[in-house]
């Protein structure tokens, strides 16, 4: 298999996995089997507090992750989709300084500090947005890992 094809396949695989991961957070809407739904609820419960007040509702049913996590995973999927289909973006992203990238965690941290320490309640949309910005960090580092693997090969 050609090296570039292999790398493109890795990007595609990660995008598909994160799409499935995000789709399953809507399980309450489309899954009708008890075992399946309780497995998924516990699965997502392991990574998110699942507080109803802090989650988005679809067809009057809550998502299995909170709005902040929806932002993080939704942002990850969106950004990774771009990186998968526009290969020039990969190298551009990799050239950015990691310290600048880490600054994208600031909005989430500020929102979290306001929420948790100062008890200032923000909206779910703000939580989603700060999560979305935060998702640039994992995309940046995972992109770097794949490109590094390509260079090592």
């Amino acid at each position: 298999m050609k090296k570039s094809t292999k790398i493109n396949l890795i990007y595609l695989l990660i995008t598909i996995s994160s799409f499935i991961f995000l789709s399953l957070t809507f399980s309450f809407v489309f899954i009708k089997d008890f075992y399946m739904i309780s497995f998924l609820k516990n699965f997502y419960g392991q990574i998110c507090h699942q507080i109803e007040k802090r989650s988005f509702f679809v067809f009057s049913k809550p998502m299995l992750i909170c709005s902040r996590c929806s932002g993080i995973f939704g942002g990850f999927l969106t950004l990774f989709l771009f990186v998968t289909f526009f290969s020039s973006l990969r190298k551009w992203l990799d050239k950015l300084n990691y310290k600048i990238i880490l600054l994208f965690s600031l909005p989430l941290l500020i929102d979290w500090i306001l929420n948790f320490i100062f008890k200032v309640e923000s909206t779910n949309f703000v939580r989603f947005l700060t999560g979305f910005l935060f998702s640039i960090i994992p995309v940046y580092f995972i992109n770097n890992l794949i490109l590094q693997q390509e260079r090592d090969d």
């Binding site: 990574i47 994992p138 580092f141």
Partner: peptide, 20 residues
């Protein structure tokens, strides 16, 4: 449940650590 979820996310964390 814990084994599956934490293996996936801890692996992502350690991979991010390698990259950084």
């Amino acid at each position: 449940n814990v084994f599956i979820v934490n293996s996936i996310f801890a692996t992502i964390g350690s991979m991010l650590s390698i990259s950084s």
